[in-house]
Design a protein around this nucleic acid. Sequence first.
DNA 1: CCGCGATGGAACAACTGTGTTCCACTACGA
DNA 2: TCGTAGTGGAACACAGTTGTTCCATCGCGG
Lengths: 178, 178
Amino acid sequence: MKNRTRQAIIDAAIDLLAGNPACSLGDIAAAAQVGRTTLHRYFAERADLLAAVGAEGGERLVRAATLADLERGTGAEALLRLCREYFDLGSLLSLMFSGQGGECWDSQDEQFLVRVIERGHNDGSIDPQLPADWVLSLLWSQLYAAWAYLGERKDSSRHQVLDLLTRTLANALAPGRS
Amino acid sequence: MKNRTRQAIIDAAIDLLAGNPACSLGDIAAAAQVGRTTLHRYFAERADLLAAVGAEGGERLVRAATLADLERGTGAEALLRLCREYFDLGSLLSLMFSGQGGECWDSQDEQFLVRVIERGHNDGSIDPQLPADWVLSLLWSQLYAAWAYLGERKDSSRHQVLDLLTRTLANALAPGRS
DNA sequence: CCGCGATGGAACAACTGTGTTCCACTACGA
DNA sequence: TCGTAGTGGAACACAGTTGTTCCATCGCGG
């Protein structure tokens, strides 16, 4: 099963690189339960593996965005649905946030999200005083915070943390009560 | 001026480590406009430099917390003042957030902040449904987001970004409008 | 049973970062 | 002028990572 092995390597790479972007290929190979030789057989250079990880990450992001059905409801509702889908991406979040997210983040996708936020500006569900790119920064940083929070405190359930995340994010984006 | 050199090295280390926690000592020495030999003369091992950076970071954090005068006003007001002070710490934020913040983060300081947040729970300025440690995660993640946002978009002024940060953080912490 | 694809291990050279030693240079005060 | 503290450069050995080559092993279908 060639694809099997390839996928195992990419999955392990995502997990390890999320925690330590400078981790060695030997560590990744070990985590994937694969010899370092085999890893090099699939990805000749480190850069090749990073590219594959970036591509995989990009796919997962697009898939999550599709699942979120961003056209439906108000801008804020769509963004919160996206937030829930992204939260399920797990350690990929750390990789996008701390690592070189530029590798897999398509500016086309970003433009799409900006339009969703602007929809929220117009329908009154997102404070128009918050620029769209600031809202995106906020989304990513809170996603990362929630993921890290879940990792540190094993006693809180995934659902509880997701609830905190959506509550604070929704509040942060809501227009003032004036 | 021995202290002069030492401080230049630490400052350069904070700036460079914030961007790349795995950067080489040679890079840090160059950024500090100091020979690598001199760097090793002040900090025999890499760990020694990291410890000094941690100590410096801890001092700056405590100083910022003191300036914020956390005993005054409601819990939320105190936290927002702290946020403003922390924002001025600049690249140190990245180091605390992405890097091994555990090096300089004193659990005693953390307990103090937890009490401030609990004060906010009691005086009605912070949503009691948000656990104190989640509020802290939120504070750090939004601080980091704001700092990164400012770094990417040189056209937005420090004041504008700080305004966005305090607005969204204040909203996120506010109790529900029910 | 044989061949073949996939794999893992061992060994290697090249490179980078680290820590050390030694020597030369400069500034400054006695 | 001399001595000394602070510094920088060159060179070295050492360790870890990387990329490569070669060979041995395992499973499976012909």
